[in-house]
């Protein structure tokens, strides 16, 4: 089986893709200073990938927090520990669920649209036209979207966390009767800014960079056909999901 994979080039193709994406990352970094000339484009992209993702992030954050509180209340009540509900909900969101679920939602909402947009620009010769007008498409098209993703992801994760805690409070305090003071008091006493909140922000930054890199790379290198754009869009979601979850394990191991 392994020999067949090697013979058919799956492994070498995958390694070549990873290498090309790595080189593309450095190309983007090199183009960032030039892209600051088009800062309005970066702001426009922050609006597009960030603000336009708010509805899905807020809705999902609310329901994730509500489900989390419901499940945890049931488990904690077995041990008589429902007073810790606020703490556990907040820690789960800040450390894991906030950054990870936001990144997965971001890949589905913004990552796919970035890939499709750049892929269609490739298919309709718009990127070639920019090259012909002596405008670097990496600086004008790719870098602003990459920066927007890196900037928007931690903000979206914070919004997700806030709505998640609100959802947890709604279920835990309003519905299941956990004491309001206990909920907030235990949470503020046990959640640490640097160890929990900021570590989650670091994770979000890393996920923002990785998901947006995958999205822009897939769009930029897509074959200029409708089928090519469709495959690239799918690959963005699949690769982003795998990489986010794998990277989450690595980062958690280092940040613990």
């Amino acid at each position: 089986m392994n020999a067949r994979f090697l013979r058919d080039g799956y492994v070498t193709d995958a390694l070549a893709q990873i290498g090309a994406a790595g080189l593309f990352f450095f190309t983007i970094l090199g183009a960032v200073p030039k892209s600051l000339r088009h800062f309005r484009e970066t702001v426009r992209q922050i609006w597009f990938v960030g603000a336009m993702s708010l509805v899905i992030i807020m809705t999902c954050g609310l329901f994730v927090g509500m489900v989390l509180a419901l499940q945890l209340y049931h488990t904690l009540s077995i041990f008589g520990g429902t007073a810790a509900l606020g703490t556990v909900v907040a820690l789960s969101l800040f450390r894991e669920l906030g950054p990870v679920v936001t990144a997965l939602l971001f890949a589905g909402r913004a990552g796919t649209s970035i890939t499709a947009e750049i892929g269609l620009m490739r298919a309709t010769d718009q990127l070639a036209a920019m090259e012909m007008m002596a405008v670097d498409p990496v600086a004008y098209v790719v870098a602003p979207r990459f920066l927007a993703g890196v900037i928007a992801m931690p903000i979206l994760a914070c919004v997700f966390n806030a709505l998640g805690i609100f959802g947890g409070h709604l279920v835990g305090v309003t519905w299941l009767g956990v004491d309001n003071g206990t909920f907030w008091g235990n949470m503020t006493a046990n959640v640490e800014v640097w160890a929990d909140v900021i570590n989650g922000v670091w994770k979000s930054l890393a996920f923002g960079a990785v998901v947006t890199l995958i999205a822009v790379f897939q769009g930029y290198t897509t074959p200029p056909t409708s089928e090519g754009v469709a495959y690239a869009t799918t690959r963005t979601v699949v690769f982003s999901s795998i990489v986010v979850l794998a990277l989450d394990f690595v980062l958690t191991a280092f940040l613990m």
Partner: peptide, 15 residues
């Protein structure tokens, strides 16, 4: 290229 104009077959306007 700044001194060359190029008309693409499919126009390639920025949408």
């Amino acid at each position: 290229r700044e001194r060359i104009g190029y008309l693409f077959q499919n126009s390639a306007l920025l949408t």
